[in-house]
Structures are given as structure tokens and as C-alpha cells.
Amino acid sequence: MPMNSFAIHAGSMFDGFSLSGPATVHVSGDRIVRVDRTGALPADGRQVVDLGPSACLLPGLIDTHVHLAFDAGPQPVTSLTSASDSDLLAHMRAAARSALMAGITTVRDLGDREYLSLTLVDEFAGNPELGPEILPAGPPLTTPGGHCHFLGGEVEGVDALRAAVRERHARGCAVIKIMASGGNMTPGSVPPHMSQYGLDDLRAVVDEAHRLGLPVAAHAHGTQAIREAVEAGVDSLEHVTFLSADGVAADSELIEIIVRKGTFVSLTLGLEPGEAVQPPKALAKHVEAILDTYGNLHKLGANVVIGSDAGIGPVKPHNVLPHGVADLARLGVAPLDALKSMTSLAARLCRMDGRKGRIAAGADADILVVNGDLEHDPAAVLDVQAVFRAGVRVR
């Protein structure tokens, strides 16, 4: 029996799809090898981590949109642009560790500088206790002077965009991020409701990325950007606020297309309680309308995942994702459905279905243990009892 062969026992289990009673999960090395849904304890003498009858096992959470390079401070852009690579890496290590301690065992990093997240991928490969598994995008593709241009991903023209996708693939990125619309953090760039790239540009990026086996995540606030990103075939829409020059104008026909095509929508949810929430000026007047749209997307059957956008301000520390369960609950989403958005459904988006986002034989031993009733209490996911990453207990 391997030295790191053990079993975890708890009073209930959410396996990424449904909740059940007492369970015992057998781990060998970095994988789950057996799940006993009767809750019987092993008879072979292996070590048992018994967390008690009020504990609930669930898969490690997946945050589909983070920025480890942003420090979650009041001036995240200034902090990033003034930091050396070594200082920025030190911060990113701490940010990753913070996420892991909250039970977030996988993250999509959708925008860094100088491909620094790839350095962390290498560091964490043999040391899973250091942080979550990172799916890096590298510097996001943006227009000259466009949203987040300071990350170094400025590119225009179909040929140059295709070449930029190839470069990210060659470096080992796991996803391509493109700024289809403007954003809120970059002075001088176009406002978030306006498009930065046209349909031909988006198609070129999607075609090249899919040819190389990479998914595409499109930052898209404006309705036109959302429509063209969907038409181009992106895998996920980030933010999806349906902004126009006059406010929020959710397009019901476009939502139907999103649902029918199965395009994932990565909703920006999860806020740190106690922090004064000051939305960007472009969004401040429209928060309720945006939240209504988010609720409707879920109600109408869209593939909803949660991307916290961790790092972009004080309300977005890198451990904030679990608060998204309560955010979705306030929109009328059942807590277990919210948890699916952070586990099994997020794993599908990340092309890690079967390995992440579920508790089943053959899956990674990324396991979060919380205390409480997950079915009825969204806050239970915040009461962390233990975290296992690739079979290593880190908390």
C-alpha cells in the first residue's frame, strides 16, 4: 500500500452533481481510487481521516476567471506595473496559496504579465501544496492601447492574432483570452460597451486556437461583442453584462442563441463581505439589471460557471470564489446548483471533465471538506474543515 494511501470519511458528500449521505473516499497517491457511498470504514488498516458526521466532502472548487498578478488592492494596475517580475511572482505565489486555503484547487488565470503564471505552473507541478492547478492564458489579446494593454498582449490584424495564438500555445498556455470589448480598468481604452475586435478577428482567434486544441475565453461586456463572440464560436463569455451606451439591454434572442449553442457564461460573482463595494462607474448604475440578467441566464438553461475576477480590487481577494454560492442563491439559484457551477460544470468548460470537479474513482484527489448543510445553507461552503490538493492535505 503506498505511503500516501488513506481514506477520508464524512457525514455527507456532494460529488459535483448531487448530495448523498455518509461517504468514505479512498485516495492513493494523487488520485481518488474508490468512493464508498455507504460510508463504511476501510478494513485494510489504511489511515482514515474521519472528519465527523457534520462534515461534507465536495470536489475542490474551480474559479474560471482570476488574475493572480493583481493584488486585490485599491490600485491593482499601479501595483502591477510598478512591480519587478520577482516581486510580482512573490505576490502571485501568495495569491495562489490564499485561493488554495479556501478550497479553490483549480484556477483559470485569464491575464498575467510576461507569462509569469507559467512559472508557477512549473513550480507547483511537483509541489501541489503550494497552490491550485493553474490554467494560464498569458497576456490577454487586446488592441493597441486597449483594455489591459499594460499586460503586454497588444495585437491587431488577423495574421498577427493567429500568430499570437500560436505563440501562447507554444509556450504552454491552456486557454486563449481575448478582450472582445473594452473594460473598466484601463484609462484611455474604449468603454466596456464598445467592441475592440470585429467578427473576422474573433473568428481567426477561435479557428487557430481550436486547431491547436485550446479553448477561447472572450471578455465581453457590450451586446455587440457578446453576439460576435458567440457567432465566432468562443468557448466562454466573461462578464456578459449586455452593456449598451444607454445602460443594460439584455437581448432575449441572443440569450436563446447562447443557450442553444451551449456557450459557457462565466459570471462575475463573489464579493468579500465587509468591504465597501464601489462598482466601476460604467457599471455602478446597472448592478441590479446585470444581476437580473445573470439570474435569467441560469433560469433559461445557460451553462453558467462563476469566474470571480479575483485580484481586481479589495472586494476581490483571491479566496473570494466561495462567496459566489451565496450570490447565486440571492438570484434564486439553489445552493447545490451554484456548487455545480464551481465544480462539475466548470470542469467541463476547462476541458478537465473526469479529472476535476467531481468525487469519483479516477479523479484528482482535490477535495474540500466543509461543515454544515450545503443543500440549504450557502454559507456552509465557507466553513472549511480541510483541503486536499492532489492527495496532499494542505489545511
Rank of each mutant, 00 (worst) to 15 (best):
N4A: 12
F6E: 09
A10W: 14
F14A: 06
D15H: 14
F17A: 14
L19V: 13
S20H: 06
A23T: 15
T24M: 02
R34N: 08
T38W: 12
D44H: 09
D44N: 13
D44R: 03
G45N: 06
R46E: 09
P53I: 10
S54V: 04
L58C: 13
P59W: 14
I62D: 01
P74L: 14
Q75P: 00
P76S: 09
S86Q: 12
S117W: 00
V121G: 06
P128Y: 00
L130Q: 12
P132I: 10
L135E: 11
P140V: 12
G145N: 05
H147K: 05
C148K: 01
F150T: 08
F150V: 10
L151W: 07
G153T: 05
V155Y: 02
V165Q: 04
H169K: 15
A174Y: 03
S181Q: 02
M185Y: 13
D200K: 13
E208C: 02
G213N: 01
A217E: 11
H221W: 04
R227W: 05
R227K: 04
E238A: 02
F242C: 03
D251V: 02
V265A: 05
S266T: 14
E275V: 15
A282I: 04
E288D: 15
L291Y: 12
K299E: 15
I312H: 01
V315G: 01
G324F: 04
A338G: 09
T343S: 09
A347W: 04
L349M: 08
K356P: 01
D364C: 05
I367V: 11
I367S: 03
A386C: 12
F388I: 10
